[in-house]
């Protein structure tokens, strides 16, 4: 699914070069459940951005589903994101003026899918994530857990192969955090590749594969099932 070879990411901060990622080699198989842990500034979000094609490495090669995506143009990368990658953010990033249903529908709209094909998909997603009663509520009228479920619905409605979650429980209380993690793991159980970035050890240790990062390098790669 994902193969990173010799990835380097260097930021220029006030004239100083900061190595956010240094010689990252990583390969993630289809259907894997990977958590990336580490202190802030360790480069885990940068890695996630590169995997999610939101950022480009300075050096190295990235094969996504056996295709080299490092050389793709911005618009081609956008198409890969649209069709193959779903994002879940710490701050949900729902569009405040749109209802829950409209937020979930947004990727379909951007992909240019006609309304009559969108409606059944949106309804199915709302039902599957227990949001049917909240379809016409705007984000401000929803609880944190509900918001994140809307965000997950949005991330999965295009049926992507890869789901990237950046601190998905970081802004939630324990109970709704658990709900959200359960939901993500259910999706993983149905075959979606799940990559979770977190600094919460409890969440990170649930993953089958656990990466630890320090100073832009992967320092440990453990199998969580053993």
């Amino acid at each position: 699914m994902i193969r990173l070879e010799g990835i380097e990411r260097v930021f220029d901060v006030g004239g100083q070069q900061v190595h956010a990622l240094h010689q990252i080699d990583l390969s993630v198989g289809r259907g894997d459940y990977v958590s990336i842990m580490g202190p802030s500034g360790s480069g885990k979000s940068t890695l996630l951005n590169i995997v999610g094609l939101l950022d480009r490495p300075n050096q190295g090669r990235y094969l996504f589903e056996e295709n080299d995506v490092t050389a793709l143009s911005d618009d081609q990368q956008a198409q890969v994101r649209r069709e193959r990658i779903g994002f879940v953010f710490q701050f949900f990033h729902l569009v405040p003026r749109l209802t829950a249903a409209e937020n979930i529908e947004l990727p379909l709209v951007l992909a240019g899918i006609p309304p009559e094909q969108r409606r059944p998909k949106v309804e199915a997603t709302l039902r599957a994530y227990g949001l049917a009663q909240r379809a016409h509520h705007r984000p401000e009228q929803l609880s944190g857990g509900q918001r994140q479920r809307v965000a997950i619905g949005r991330a999965t409605i295009m049926e992507p192969g890869l789901l990237l979650a950046d601190e998905p429980t970081g802004n939630l209380d324990r109970a709704s955090g658990h709900e959200v993690v359960d939901l993500l793991e259910q999706l993983n159980g149905r075959g979606i590749t799940l990559v979770v970035v977190t600094h919460d050890p409890e969440l990170g240790q649930r993953a089958r594969r656990q990466l630890h990062m320090v100073d832009g390098a992967i320092v440990s790669d453990r199998d969580g099932t053993t």
Binding site: D74, R81, F87, H93, L106, L110
Partner: peptide, 16 residues
Amino acid sequence: TAEIGLLKALGAPATT
């Protein structure tokens, strides 16, 4: 800004 970033993450090309 955040909304534009989101649209980009969801795969909206610059022209859109």
